[in-house]
Design a protein around this nucleic acid. Structure first.
Length: 380
DNA sequence: TCTTCCCGCCATGGC
DNA sequence: GCCATGGCGGGAAGA
């Protein structure tokens, strides 16, 4: 991921190229924060967010659930959330810490009691006495659905860090600690697969906020998460963490969420005939049938997509290092610029269009900066 | 092959 | 019954 491979021919030729990276939850979260983490924003409508970002509501739920558990948002009403901003994170973390200490939370412990006591995570960490009393007495049999909620998992994930002295926790450790019953191999197997997926979701969102950093354990090389906490996230609540680490972590282009809704878009874009369904996995075909009834918003966007909605060709995470040959860089830059002009995204709204323009500018200034450094190095 | 995680089905609960 | 919410896991992209 440290170098930018030349785009495959199929990609340069096919404007409907599908890239999973462009649709990641982290990228979506970044876009979400860029839209709402600013002065004057007080409430957020889920429909509005979904439309602005060009994704289906389901993805917005994931984001808001995670953000809500660190206090950035709180639910106001159906479809409506209060935007509280990054300034609300410290008190939320304090509260989580307090809660965790009460529960003797640790990475080696079982999280069941924690799950129960913080179950009413909706609206942020809670102090509800009645809830806690109730939950502690029936901790093994609280509402199963809520106990497994993404928000709760998020809070427990945070507690792992804020209640221990270590700032690096491996994926394995986190997954094991967050399992309901680590002594039951069957439950563990079933839970872990699902929870690990959720951990990835949470990690992606948090790393886009710079609350954590995805890394690897120095010895085992296994995936791990490093807690950056508030030193990584913005303190004034007006700038995203990305802004603070622009030159280091900026993910050009991929920050625009792809409106192409389907993994098979590459094929379907080339062949709009219904015959394509024959090659599609069953469940995809099922959702395609749904398209015809026009129920799913993203799938409707898919129809738009076939008329030209495409995403930025950049691959920020793959940016070449300063040490790469300059010619190579120049070629790549030229290639990307060619791509950008050939397949300029037609964003569905002004905000995204502006964002795209911003990234193009940012990309150019970044490249100038890198090229400048390279020259200085060579001179010295 | 293994890891990562997108995607959307469908259960649940509120109105 | 309708709709909002969100758990869940299949399976595909990426390493």
């Amino acid at each position: 991921m440290s170098s930018l491979p030349p785009p495959p021919e199929s990609q340069t030729r096919n404007p409907y190229y599908y890239s999973r990276k462009e649709k990641s939850l982290g990228v979506l979260c970044t876009n979400f924060l860029k839209l709402y983490n600013r002065d004057g924003v007080e409430s957020i409508g889920l429909d509005d967010a979904a439309n602005q970002l060009g994704v289906e509501r389901r993805r917005i739920y994931d984001i808001v659930n995670i953000l809500e558990s660190v206090g950035v948002l709180s639910r106001k009403a159906k479809n409506q959330y209060f935007w509280k901003g990054f300034g609300a994170i410290p008190p939320a973390l304090d509260q989580l810490k307090e809660e965790a200490l009460r529960e003797n939370f640790s990475t080696s412990g079982c999280f069941h009691s924690a799950n129960a006591s913080s179950e009413n995570h909706k609206g942020g960490p809670s102090n509800s006495k009645t809830d806690r009393q109730e939950k502690s007495s029936v901790s093994c049999k609280v509402d199963n659905r809520k106990e497994k909620s993404l928000g709760l998992l998020t809070q427990n994930f945070i507690k792992l860090f804020i209640c221990s002295s270590v700032d690096l926790i491996s994926l394995d450790t986190a997954a094991t600690a967050l399992l309901g019953d680590i002594h039951d191999p069957t439950a563990m197997r079933n839970n872990s697969a699902a929870k690990v997926r959720r951990l990835y979701d949470i990690a992606n969102v948090f790393s886009s906020m710079n609350l954590i950093e995805k890394t690897h354990h120095p010895e085992s090389r296994k995936p791990a998460f490093r807690w950056l906490g508030l030193k990584g996230s913005p303190k004034n609540g007006h700038a995203t963490s990305l802004d603070l680490n622009e030159s280091r972590k900026r993910m050009f282009g991929t920050e625009i969420t792809n409106t192409l809704p389907k993994k098979y878009k590459t094929d379907s874009a080339l062949d709009c005939n219904s015959n394509q369904n024959a090659d599609m996995p069953t469940h995809k075909r099922r959702s395609n049938l749904k398209d015809e009834h026009g129920r799913n918003s993203t799938e409707q966007q898919g129809k738009h997509s076939s008329k030209g909605f495409v995403f930025g060709p950049f691959t920020p995470a793959n940016m070449p290092k300063v040490g790469d040959s300059e010619n190579k860089n120049a070629r790549r830059v030229q290639g990307l610029e060619d791509l950008a002009s050939s397949y300029r995204p037609l964003y569905r709204n002004q905000a995204l269009s502006d964002l795209f323009g911003h990234y193009v500018e940012a990309w150019k200034s970044w490249y100038d900066e890198v090229a400048g450094k390279k020259q200085i190095q060579e001179v010295s």
